[in-house]
Computed example of a mutant assay.
Amino acid sequence: MFEEFAEDTRAVIDSALVEVGQRGDQRLGTEHLLLGLLHVPVSPWARALGVSLATARRTLDEIDRSALAVIQIDISRVRLGGTPPPATKGIPWTYAARGVIKHAAEEMVHRRGRSLEPKHILLGILESRRPDLASAVLDQLAVDRTAVRNRLR
Rank of each mutant, 00 (worst) to 15 (best):
S115H: 08
I73Q: 12
R129E: 15
S135N: 05
A11M: 11
L28M: 15
G36E: 01
M108A: 14
I75F: 00
S135M: 04
R27W: 08
G81E: 12
R23N: 04
W45C: 03
P41D: 09
L126R: 10
R58D: 06
I91T: 14
Q26D: 14
A56E: 02
G21M: 08
G29P: 00
R111K: 12
L80M: 05
A67T: 08
R27L: 12
I71H: 01
D8Y: 02
G99L: 11
Y95R: 12
R23V: 02
L152Y: 09
P86I: 05
R129G: 01
L126T: 07
I121P: 01
R10L: 15
L34P: 07
R58L: 04
A16K: 08
V70T: 12
I71N: 02
R130I: 02
E31S: 09
V100E: 04
R23Y: 07
L60F: 07
I73K: 11
E107V: 13
L38Y: 09
T9Q: 06
G36F: 09
G90L: 11
V78R: 08
L35V: 11
D64M: 05
P92R: 12
D8S: 12
Y95C: 01
A6N: 06
S76V: 00
A96R: 14
E7A: 10
A105G: 02
L141K: 10
R153K: 11
E106A: 13
V40H: 11
D8C: 02
I71Q: 08
P86V: 05
A56H: 05
P118T: 07
I125Y: 01
H120Q: 04
L35I: 10
T94H: 03
F5G: 06
V12S: 04
V78A: 09
T146R: 15
A46E: 03
A67P: 02
E31F: 03
R27Y: 13
F2I: 11
D61W: 04
G29H: 03
L37Y: 10
R98Q: 14
S43I: 01
A67K: 12
D139K: 12
M1R: 12
L68H: 00
H110A: 14
A136P: 00
V42R: 15
M1I: 04
I73L: 15
I75A: 13
V109T: 05
R79M: 10
T83G: 03
P41K: 09
L60S: 12
H120D: 09
R111E: 08
A136T: 05
L68V: 01
Y95I: 09
S66K: 13
R129N: 06
H103W: 03
A136W: 00
G99E: 10
A67G: 08
R153P: 00
V42T: 15
R27A: 13
Q26R: 15
H103Q: 13
S43A: 15
D25E: 15
F2V: 04
S52Q: 05
Q140K: 15
Q140I: 00
L60Y: 06
P85H: 03
G50V: 04
A16V: 07
R129P: 02
H110W: 03
T9A: 14
E31I: 04
V100Y: 09
K89M: 01
A67I: 04
